[in-house]
């Protein structure tokens, strides 16, 4: 009796330590990020940093305006969503509601495999296959642009969106589906009018987490977005999303120089954006959990 409680306390403490350790490490990273990023604001105002249209960190005098980088990230993320959300959600609907069990056995692992492709491989595919194709189809000078980056990011977001959406649909009570079918609804009516609305909170979470995956992705945008630190005027323009900028420039930025601090501050902005995405996803999930299912 006594021995078992001691053992239990030991196990509990062990788990607590592990849990605390990850929180502490996370906190340290955040502190470090801010400590290295904030000094840039002695040189430029927050406003000029966020809204400045010129990013010439190595010019003399340098310009530290990351607005083009923010626009690059946002545009690429939104466009990738436009591609990935319908594909991700529809594939989830197909896998969970329509596909026969054999088709499911093929499709599910295939989608998961897409998730396991290293991003550098996807980037490579974008450079070597997609870029020349786009160049030819649209008769543009380079295929390394917003569109290419969006397609590649969509490829990375689809598995996330699809698998979370599938869980959400799966979580809809079987009774609801049966109730709808028993009223004489077809399978498609049941999916579109009962299953999807009932899974809406989970589907929104899926979309937001997919976006947050896309906005933080570095390697792909570094390889296929084209790299120009200017505000893109069309989807065929090159751009330079925030992660690409950080990754490309960090090595050449003098340690604890202004450029270095500016890159860290860019990291802070990126962190805030992904954090916001995740908080919104959590809020949606929590809000609807209280009612059990989404209320229309």
């Amino acid at each position: 009796m006594n021995a078992s409680t001691t053992k239990e306390t030991a196990i509990k403490t062990g788990f607590l330590v592990v849990a605390l350790a990850s929180i502490v490490i996370l906190a340290m990273i955040v502190v470090f990020l801010f400590r290295e990023g904030l000094p840039i604001f002695r040189k430029v105002s927050v406003r000029d940093f966020l809204l400045g249209r010129y990013w010439y960190p190595t010019a003399d005098p340098p310009d530290f305006g990351i607005f083009p980088l923010i626009v690059g990230s946002v545009v690429v993320t939104l466009l990738s969503c436009v591609i990935a959300v319908p594909l991700g959600v529809l594939s989830a609907v197909y896998v969970s509601e329509i596909a026969g069990s054999r088709m499911k056995e093929i499709l599910k692992p295939a989608i998961e495999l897409l998730a396991s492709l290293p991003s550098v491989v996807i980037g490579f595919f974008g450079m070597v296959v997609v870029a020349p194709t786009l160049q030819e189809w649209f008769d543009i000078p380079t295929g390394l642009n917003v569109l290419n980056a969006s397609i590649m990011l969509a490829l990375m977001a689809i598995p996330t969106i699809s698998s979370i959406s599938e869980d959400a649909l799966h979580g809809v009570r079987r009774e609801l589906r049966e109730a709808s079918l028993a009223l004489g609804a077809t399978r498609w009516e049941t999916i579109s009018r009962v299953m999807i609305p009932a899974a809406l909170s989970g589907l929104s979470t899926a979309v937001i987490l997919g976006m947050s995956r896309a906005i933080g992705e570095t390697m792909v945008v570094l390889m296929v977005a084209g790299g120009a630190a200017a505000i893109p005027e069309s989807i065929f323009d090159a751009c330079r999303p925030m992660p690409a900028s950080i990754a490309a420039e960090m090595a050449e930025a003098p340690f604890r120089g202004d450029h270095y601090h500016a890159l860290f501050a860019t990291g802070v902005v990126l962190f805030m954006m992904t954090l916001a995405f995740n908080l919104v996803a959590d809020m949606i999930a929590a809000k609807y959990k209280q009612v059990g299912t989404a209320t229309l």
Binding site: L176, A179, S180, A182, L183, G184, P197, G292, A294, T295
Partner: peptide, 16 residues
């Protein structure tokens, strides 16, 4: 299924 309606054991209202 329209002509033969069904009521289930557990109340299953739609989230509507």
């Amino acid at each position: 299924r329209r002509r033969v309606g069904m009521v289930f054991q557990k109340p299953n209202p739609f989230p509507k």
